[in-house]
Every structure is written in structure tokens, then in C-alpha cells.
Amino acid sequence: MAAAAPEWATKEPCLMGIDEAGRGPVLGPMVYGCMYCARSYNNTLATLKFADSKTLKEEQREELFESLKVNSCIGWEVDVICPKDLSAKMLKKSKVNLNEISHNSAMGLVRKVLDMGVLLAEVYIDTVGDPEKYRIKLAEKFPGIKFVVAKKADSLYPVVSGASIVAKVTRDRALRNWVFDETALNMHMKTGSGYPGDPDTKQWLEDHKHPVFGFPTLVRFSWGTCTPFFKDAVEVTWETDELDEDATNSGTAKRQVKLSSLGFTGFKRKTEEIESSGKGRCKFFQARKLELVRKF
């Protein structure tokens, strides 16, 4: 359900900047934002003081965001990737890394804006990974658009600075208005920056860790910052991980993961019993992973 683009954007070639907020922190969403304007408006844009969002105070960013929202010569969009989606993608059987998630989000914004009818001529974007490889990836996906991929693009190009404000303000608001899925008691949102060096973040993680569930879904479980907290947690072994190991060890993923081998039945069997169980049973039982348990 793409909204229609402003009329000027469908008639005049446009510039767009793309930037991200919240790529590094251990908690909260990662937000990709974009801002576009007519090429002829770029000089005016440069006078609007859209500095890199990181150099601005929160109130200044909020003010600038409100001013660009009412500016009829500017268009913007955001893509909010919630932390549970980030964790889930990075912990999938076929893992998707953060660079790929970032690339997909940025490309999703380009696609969305094009679908709205915006006449995109040039896109400026802060790099993720190698700038030239990223530029080629973008150019192949969207022929006809000139991509400029640069380190610190947010401080070099006003459209990217604008995009970084859109992204940063959206992330800050998402965290401010965060509603926990979890209904555990005494949860709070004094999260700090989300970086491991921040004492508030450390304290927040300490306050919200749970031996069985780990953390609320505000946290990105796939982040290294979480690892030390899982040392004291209850050990969890996944069937999908076990299958992976089996596949590498014995060249087959078909072996059943047995509850007994996972220490579930609480009854230790002799090795030969473990090896022979399942064998000789008819296919009906094998296919359904039904095992006759004689001792429990």
C-alpha cells in the first residue's frame, strides 16, 4: 500500500540519502531512514543545518525532524527492523549476517520510493562493508540510478544527514515508546546507549536477564554483548544445531536426535543400546520418530 509521491518528485530528477541508526547496540530496533528532494533543491537543503545526527543533541534532532516533516520539498521513509527479527535472522539455520540485513533494508527503501513513483536519479548512502562492492550490488539491482557509497556519507552529503536524523529520531522514539511483549515484573527502559561500555546498559542487562528465557525480546540475542550473560543461564540445546553437527560428523542429517542422547529421559543407557535403538523397527515408527521406551 505505497503512498503516492509528491508531484515534484515524479517530474524532476531527485536525490536521495540513506542512513541507519542503531546498528551496533545490543537492544532495540535497527532503523533505516531515507530522505529525498528534487535535485534543484539540494543547495537550499545544505542551508538547513542537517548535520550528522550523532553530532546533534536529542532535542535538536527532534526539532529538525519536525521541520523536515512539514517541509513540502522533502520526502522521507523509514524501515524499522525490530530486535526479534534481527535475532531471528542471525540465529536461523542458514544465518543472515547484519551486513546483508542492512543491505536488504536499504534496497527495500529504494524499491519503496521507486514504487511510489519518485524519479530517483542519485542515491547517497553510508557504506556497510566494502564501499565498492556495495555500490556494484546496488547498481546491479537498480540500473539507471547513480549510487554514491561512502564512509561517513552522513557528514558529507546533506541528504544523508537528513536521512540520519529521520533514522535516529525514529529509533529513539521506538525505544521511548517501547511496549514489552513480556509481562515479567520490574522491567524498565533505562537502557543506556545499548553499547557494552555503557554502565546503564550493563545494569539493564543485569536487571533483565532470566536463567531460562535469556532476555526480553528487546534484546538482540545474537550480539556478543549477551554472551557473558548466558554463561550463568540454563543450557539450551537445539535440535537444529544437533542435526548440523551430525551432518558434519557423519555425512548424514537423517539420524534422529534422541531424547535419551539429549539427557531427557534421565535414564542413562549403555552405549550399545543407544546405537541399536531404532534399528530394526519398522519404517512406520522410524518415520514418526517413535521409539519403544522400556526403561524410564
Binding site: D181, E182, T183, A184, H210, P211, V212, F213, P216, V234, E235, V236, T237, W238, E239, T240, L262, G263, F264
Partner: peptide, 18 residues
């Protein structure tokens, strides 16, 4: 669940598992 949780005790499932 498709995993083994190596603990035999009560847990606040309804607070966390939604």
C-alpha cells in the same frame, strides 16, 4: 519446543513465551 532446556524446575512461561 525443538530444544532441550537443561533445567527441571518451574519457569514463568506465560510471562516470557508469547
Amino acid at each position: 519446543l525443538p530444544c532441550v532446556i537443561r533445567q527441571n524446575a518451574a519457569a514463568p512461561v506465560s510471562d516470557y513465551f508469547k
